[in-house]
Design a protein around this nucleic acid. Structure first.
Length: 440
RNA sequence: GAGCCCGUAGCUCAGUUGGUUAGAGCGCUAGGUUGUGGCCCUGGAGGCCGUGGGUUCAAUUCCCAUCGGGCUCCCCA
């Protein structure tokens, strides 16, 4: 490969025009469906104060301890946001969103940054969409958040997913469980994997999702957190499950599901897909009833999830789901000679005014090259203009698909195209998700 | 942070057991059709064979390093 003077940073990729189509499709879908759930979009800065992220996610989490992009300028410390729950909570507190009344039902779409080693489904700049509901302790909120998450994948036709569900209880329940777990593991401490041994003191819960061979026998018979839940936590968890049942959302209880950030309490969930390989989590989330207070707000219960957009696209590819329509333009004006070219340029605004897309050659090429370009651009119609047309005031309108031509005045062309546009809009709505097996 | 694999045209890949001008298909471009796309035919442009160093009379080929990519572990979306 020829050497380029500049390139993107490791683990960061350009999203090129052909790819952007599917991004726009997904973003539009999220906006549209979020609106149906009455979730409102929130946009926060790409950078936050280092302290917010450290306090929010926990000093000892992997994200904070080794995956953060940070720098300082003067006395200020900046971090490229690695996730959006803590920033959204910050915005909630800083802008007194609780004063809007009721619970705040927010969603977001945007880039996140983690300094990890890239691999399939993992980049240093990646994109998430997610929901945060602040101010409700009601299990209905948990159920709705999960319902929205599941809804998006279902809408796209990503069917073979598994929703894993667990409750990690309130801090008291968790402490009791940690103690029991450590007591259970202690006699066999020496037999645990090295990683698990180091986690033993720091974060014993993480031992539960160890993939190390030697840990498996101990994990299989380990005590289960759901047995240690307080009465309140138990009721909450039971209700969440009930509501999910009512909504017809199936799930698999996984008592060993533990999530990465320190702020989680109670409900924890993950949506996984077998199509993703090693990074199999499409989305994950849970309750974080203590985070708002931790960040300096009033005690406020909350629940949310985050979903990886790149991973969603990987799942689509594996399932042969194509998002977004092919590129096309309604009108391509093909011109011969300078006078025609000038005329063509002047017609573009009127066509666009009708709500149609229109373009012409920018390179002064031959008619054949222009036709070829129109074909490549997937033009529905071409308007062909040369001296004859200019003299007669009638222009050639060519339907590219049917290869039919008519000699019409510009007014007639505009009327015809408007009619065509209306028909296309009202009757011929095509859902822009397809499988390649559907298309010829 | 650790391990394994891979870097030859814009893309997908041949090839050189080390030896003059490095190939194909697709794509791009021009022409065949002096005013008509998709198919076909013909021509053209496009590569310091990722980068740096070493071995050698000679390196795209062998060795080392480096950068980039892929995958796995770890962790997460």
């Amino acid at each position: 490969m020829a050497k380029h003077k500049f390139s993107t940073h490791h683990g960061m990729v350009d999203i090129l025009p052909d790819e952007v189509r599917k991004w726009q499709y997904l973003e539009n879908l999220i906006h549209q469906e979020a609106e149906k759930f009455n979730f409102e979009e929130i946009r926060t800065p790409i950078m936050e104060q280092t302290e917010l992220i450290v306090r929010g996610l926990g000093q000892l989490t992997d994200i904070v301890s080794k995956e953060i992009f940070s720098f300082s300028r003067g006395d200020d410390n900046y971090v490229l946001r690695p996730e959006l729950t803590a920033p959204v909570v910050r915005a909630f507190v800083e802008n007194h969103l609780d004063q809007r009344g009721g619970s705040q039902k927010l969603y977001y779409i945007g880039p996140m940054f983690r300094a990890e080693r890239p691999q399939k489904g993992r980049q240093r700049q990646f994109h998430q969409f997610g929901v945060e509901v602040l101010g409700s302790a009601d299990p209905v909120a948990d159920a709705e958040v999960i319902a929205f998450m599941v809804h998006i994948y279902k809408k796209l036709g990503i069917a073979n997913t598994t929703l894993k569900l667990n409750s990690i209880g309130d801090p008291e329940s968790r402490e009791a469980y940690k103690k029991a777990l450590k007591e259970y593991l202690k006699p066999n401490f020496e037999k645990l994997s090295d990683i698990s041994q180091t986690r033993f003191e720091k974060n014993p819960l993480r031992i539960l999702d160890s993939k190390e061979e030697e840990d498996q026998p101990f994990i299989e018979t380990a005590p289960v957190i759901t047995d240690f839940l307080s009465e309140e936590s138990k009721v909450h968890y039971t209700q969440v499950k009930e509501y999910l049942d009512d909504l017809g959302i199936s799930y698999v209880e996984d008592p060993y599901l533990v999530r990465g950030m320190d702020y989680y309490t109670q409900t924890a969930f993950e949506l996984i897909s077998p199509d993703l390989g090693s990074q199999d989590a499409l989305a994950g989330g849970g309750r974080y009833d203590l985070l708002v207070e931790e960040i300096g707000g009033k005690p406020t219960p909350a629940v949310g999830f985050a979903a990886g957009m790149e991973r969603l696209f990987i799942a689509c590819e594996e399932l042969d789901i194509k998002l977004g329509s092919e590129k096309s333009v309604d009108i391509y004006i093909v011109t011969l000679g300078d006078a025609a070219r000038k005329w063509g340029l002047k017609q573009l605004p009127a066509i666009r005014e009708k709500g149609l897309s229109a373009t012409m050659d920018y390179m002064g090429r031959s008619m054949k090259a222009q036709m070829k370009d129109a074909n490549r651009e997937n033009a529905r119609y071409t308007i062909i203009v040369g001296e004859n047309e200019l003299n007669e005031g009638k222009f050639t309108l060519r339907n590219m698909k049917e290869s039919e031509e008519n000699q019409l005045t510009m007014d007639e062309i505009l009327n015809k195209l408007s009619a065509w546009l209306n028909v296309r809009r009202s009757i011929f709505y095509k859902h822009p998700i397809s499988r390649s097996s559907d298309r010829k």
